[in-house]
Nucleic acid binder design. Structure first.
Lengths: 233, 233
DNA sequence: GAGTGGTCTAGACCACTCG
DNA sequence: GAGTGGTCTAGACCACTCC
């Protein structure tokens, strides 16, 4: 037992976690029912439920009605990581933030981008490339495509000194999206922008955002060498 | 409104989400209090609480006592992604899985690994390199260091045909860990193992696992070119 | 100090599954 | 069919913060 006084759902969660880690509850094994644990811990079933549900959300327990709750064979399969908002990410690291527009054109996207956007017919989109700096060093390239119908000419002017992401957040509603993490060799233009050797391995985050079933924007964030994203479980 | 009949926390969550997406609740704005929403939706405050808490967990709402609940300026900053269990990942994609041991030696880790493990003094660790295959193609290199005290000679034999990860899961308790995602240029040996060009950009996952405050193992998963990890929000 | 979200309870019914 | 987790309620008190 951790402490006899407490009976919060967090203390129940901790105790359960301790039992998993200490292998008192072994992988693959059924653990006691909610009602029994409630009695053991001297709290209501709701409290036990909340605690075990939290562990299940993190992938450390497997729960099914009637079947009961089990410790999974392969735990911790889920990691929640916070996707950085670039400006805040840079400022949090103690650097000065700045942004500069590299290019802004209306053009027909290449096929891989068209696929991400779900555009079947060839059509123009707004293609914006910008560069975010930490102090004077290039930090990440923001290569974005936006549905042209969303932005009128007055908006377009805003992109010269405002990151498209910050524009989108305040102007465009969205309902869902996907995020993908991958890596990429720097081509010559990318290397030039990021001031790194051509061919360098770069970390890439791709985000596509939809409004109902229609894609409205897709962005590729290409980070300067050495970037890594971290989380703890 | 979505449907008048329902009053589950999920329906409340959906309605709240719809209001955020439609900008009826705008970024930065205060939304109604739990009690008011409970009355509006015809459910108890607990139900509203559960729904709004779920949205807050996903980073779509910002809640503070006394201050109330707000729509954040930059939403969806959290992504939960499931870290693949290699064997299952490969099988799920419809390939045959196989594993082969590349090397197994007791040696002193290089400094970067020693740092990850938190080893201050120079000491030997068990260094295991293995290769996971999807059909006959190399899929990922598993480059792992294990605290030598954890494995005795009889265990070591098991590594010839069992992935160290699967061994660890069933033999070693742990309490916490960190996961990092990054990218890396293939050196010559890595390129040879993964059957890819030297210098190719590879996706890398590093995991370090601790038991109480002591690091027990650190692993670097180096994926063959083209790998990406995805999630939706 | 006062108001908001955070949590707990006891009880109830429901929904999903397994034997 | 029966047992387990999933959820809802009404009410209560607490803890954190903002005014």
């Amino acid at each position: 037992m951790t402490d006899e006084k407490q009976k919060s759902w967090q203390s129940v969660k901790e105790e359960a976690l301790a039992r998993i880690h200490s292998r008192r509850w072994k992988p693959g094994q059924l653990i006691p029912f909610e009602a029994d644990l409630a009695e053991e811990f001297g709290c209501s079933r709701s409290t036990v439920n909340r605690a075990l549900r939290a562990l299940a959300d993190e992938g450390l327990l497997d729960r099914r009605r009637k079947a009961g709750t089990r410790v999974p064979l392969y735990p911790a399969r889920k990691a929640t990581l916070s996707v950085p908002v670039i400006r805040e990410d840079i400022i949090a690291k103690g650097y000065d933030y700045s942004y500069s527009l590299v290019s802004l054109e209306a053009e027909v996207p290449p096929t891989d981008v068209a696929v991400r956007l779900g555009w079947t017919a060839a059509r123009q989109g707004l293609h914006i490339v910008g560069l975010h700096f930490a102090n004077t060093s290039p930090y990440v390239i923001e290569d974005r495509w936006i549905d042209q119908n969303l932005a009128d000419s007055s908006d377009v002017e805003a992109f010269s000194n405002l990151s498209p992401n910050e524009w989108l957040v305040t102007h465009v509603p969205f309902t869902a999206g996907t995020i993908a993490f991958s890596s990429l060799n720097a081509d010559t233009q990318t290397a030039r922008l990021l001031d790194c050797p051509s061919g360098a391995a770069l970390f890439v985050i791709e985000r596509t955002t939809r409004n109902n079933r229609r894609s409205i924007t897709t962005v590729r964030l290409i980070f300067a060498p050495g970037y890594q994203i971290e989380t703890s479980i």
